[in-house]
Design a protein around this nucleic acid. Structure first.
Ligand SMILES: [Mn+2]
Ligand SMILES: [Mn+2]
Ligand SMILES: [Zn+2]
Ligand SMILES: [Zn+2]
Lengths: 138, 138
DNA sequence: TCCTATATTGGACTTAGTCCAAGTCAAGCA
DNA sequence: TGCTTGACTTGGACTAAGTCCAATATAGGA
């Protein structure tokens, strides 16, 4: 994620301890944390970081296209650092576990003109639901 | 929607003025109202109906499978009476207009085993995004 | 018509998130 | 290296969406 920090510096960002910590927390694959989870992990590394700064930083990262907001459940938004390789999500209906998935085919092409109601369709978001191995065997 | 009222009576529901009004408000196609919108329209017909009752009734309808909860934007949940014919949604990114759509093919089959991570996948929810005719021409 | 389990109500409470005025500090410059 | 300053951070107040509850009302069966 230090390439992320580089890109941000390139865009004129001041490199503060808070922003560095948020970027660190958002590192890895299958990472889909809520703002409060990001805050909790950030506090572990930098105790004085505020909720407001976490929200600010996440919002900035989203509007720069470096992080995606996903709303797979009906609760808090989740923040997904895997923004540069398009993907969809598979969610456990019981425990909430989330995985990144890449279905085959092009779902945009599967919406016939007669079902477009004159819209200019540019994007599709898919959420698969089911039970993860742990929850299925319990 | 009076067949809905019949089904509810059959399930032992007391038929109150409040429940009748909520059911009336949720009538039609392409209906995707928030709880507050349902409440506002219900108040127009039955001024003394409370927010709590609207939430209670919507929750009951959802758990009976008569109404779907959809979260197409990141704001309030929307309530969709079109629960008996499976469908997906097409949302205008600018004004929020929502249409019911039926893509061709079976998106469940498009998720290869190697992308299932051992999950038992049972369902998929698709949200197409774009601009509605009005917003595209503005 | 009466009775009572079921439904409704208003308001307090919670959760997720936004906003702001005041204080702090990163980074360019002397 | 030390100043300066505008960008950044902070805590707390505020909002929106939704839940919960004790008190009250009523649908529908006896
Ligand atoms: Mn993801
Ligand atoms: Mn719908
Ligand atoms: Zn699970
Ligand atoms: Zn529109």
């Amino acid at each position: 994620m230090s390439d992320l920090l580089e890109r941000l510096r390139g865009r004129g960002w001041r490199m503060t301890a808070q922003r560095r910590v948020v970027a660190e927390v958002l590192d890895g694959e299958h990472v889909h944390l809520t703002a409060d989870e990001v805050h909790a992990r950030a506090v572990a590394k930098l105790p004085e970081i505020s909720r407001a700064t976490v929200y600010n930083t996440l919002g900035e990262l989203v509007s720069l296209g470096e992080v995606l907001e996903v709303s797979t459940d009906k609760r808090a938004k989740r923040y997904d650092p895997n923004a540069h390789r398009p993907h969809h999500h598979l969610v456990c209906a019981r425990c909430g576990a989330i995985r990144d998935v890449r279905p085959i085919g092009n779902p945009l092409a599967d919406l016939p003109d007669s079902e477009r109601f004159g819209f200019t369709v540019s994007d599709v978001e898919m959420t698969y639901r089911g039970l993860c191995p742990d929850c299925a065997s319990a």
